[in-house]
Design a protein around this nucleic acid. Structure first.
Lengths: 247, 247
DNA sequence: CGCCCCATTGAGACGGCTCAACTTGCGTGG
DNA sequence: CCACGCAAGTTGAGCCGTCTCAATGGGGCG
């Protein structure tokens, strides 16, 4: 179970022993493109905690904003709750991805954050990150870039929700997940979805029935193979085309 | 025509004479909550240019990212173009609002930006703003906050597109515009829409016909009065309720 | 074994889209 | 000054994709 690379490993989610320097996500995550000695400074402010169980909340909308988080293992969703109880999932986060930016403005978290699987996260106290960003220009730059990327992703999502039909939306999600898996050197064609049909439907503005029917249709057309949460992408090219299907 | 407050005024869009210190948008815009001497430092890197005509582009997606922009007068829209030519308006920007954040990540602008009316903008070269942010902690903080706010706005927009019906979407846009007008001490109940029905439909994921019918219905129910682009909000409370109408 | 939850599938309803006709306002040119 | 064309908006009729409601299937767990 213990990782031979890490000399103080205590469990298979690797929290106590972790450091950015030997983290295999450092090429994706916050330390991207930083000097070794700067990574050590960043490392010293990062806190790693015990794993979060699936269904457990990391924090909720309205709580005082203190930290941003990097996903270390597992998977996480963020969601809004409207005045009258309508929920909207605003994103799924996989290892190496960073969340919590939406709390900076009001000093309260804007989203609810819950683990989909058993997950571990790195907590980065924002005020210390801010101080460090004043001292390390590449960190400040990188932080701006991460927020900018989130804005771009949201813009793409607006287009998806506004212009695409059910097939286009589902295909777009699958391609996005596939790309994010392959960035982590995992297979781009075989994946286990971390979220339920309910979550997919909520995220994409569809009912679970429509999501289910769409999966079935894509399977019948031999573009994907689906077995519950296991998805195989058979025909990547056609799936890419379907991403652009409009209403 | 010339503004008596500004001693070198040359036109009613006020570009050459402008400075943050005497700008009546400073309470909304980038200088928010900055010291006077820091505002002067910010001011010194900001460039003001000639007015942009309605329909004229400020920049296009793919061009090299150099600056962010604050709207000084008029109104501006940003939009994406998909691989196969589908356009999605990603935002409308009114005086005091800031755009261009989406270019930081890739060092290319992500959106196309075009003026809806004759407009003026303040151009803020990003690399100089970055340098200044390292020296002025409140500026760095404020910059983070502005990007965070954009992320939060986008999340709200995802909810709107994913969960609301046509009435809910149109009402949400009207309330948003109303709030932004009143922040500028303008009437929250009487406004002239800067964008066409086409733009509204594109932004909200509806056809122009549906937008038009929705305006007509809201008018028949005496919630608003519409005359082309002139809109009066008659019953603010009911319009607020309609914002939450789901599919 | 039986219960519950999640997913799938089918049948019918409905909101928004498509297509088309008509109106209105505005700029151009006779 | 009016005639004309053009762009933008409104309104109506019919269609289609997704939702709603309901029944069924399958896997995990007490």
């Amino acid at each position: 179970m213990s990782n031979p690379v890490l000399n103080t490993a205590t469990c298979n989610h690797g929290f106590i022993e972790a450091s950015c320097t030997n983290c295999n996500l450092k090429g994706l995550c916050l330390p991207l493109a930083m000097d070794i000695k700067d990574i050590d400074r960043l490392d010293s402010i990062i806190q790693r905690s015990r794993p979060i169980q699936g269904g457990e909340h990391l924090y909720r909308a309205g709580e005082k904003f203190t930290s941003i988080y990097a996903v270390r293992s597992g998977s996480i969703k963020t969601y809004l709750i409207d005045d009258d109880g309508i929920e909207q999932i605003t994103g799924f986060y996989l290892p190496g991805e960073i969340l919590g930016f939406d709390g900076i403005d009001t000093n309260e978290y804007g989203c609810n954050v819950v683990a989909l699987d058993t997950s571990t996260v790195c907590e980065i106290p924002f005020h210390r990150l801010e101080e460090l960003s004043l001292q390390i220009p590449t960190l400040q730059r990188h932080f701006f870039q991460l927020m900018s990327r989130q804005i771009e992703n949201n813009h793409q999502m607006l287009l998806t929700l506004s212009k695409k039909n059910a097939e286009g939306r589902v295909a777009t999600l699958l391609i996005s997940l596939s790309q994010r898996y392959s960035r982590r050197k995992l297979s781009p064609n075989a994946m286990r979805l971390p979220m339920s049909r309910m979550d997919i439907g909520n995220f994409l503005g569809l009912t679970i029935e429509t999501v289910s029917r769409t999966f079935s249709r894509l399977q019948k057309e031999k573009i994907i193979e689906v077995d519950g949460r296991e998805v195989l992408i058979i025909d990547h090219d056609r799936l890419n085309e379907i991403c652009h299907k409009t209403r």
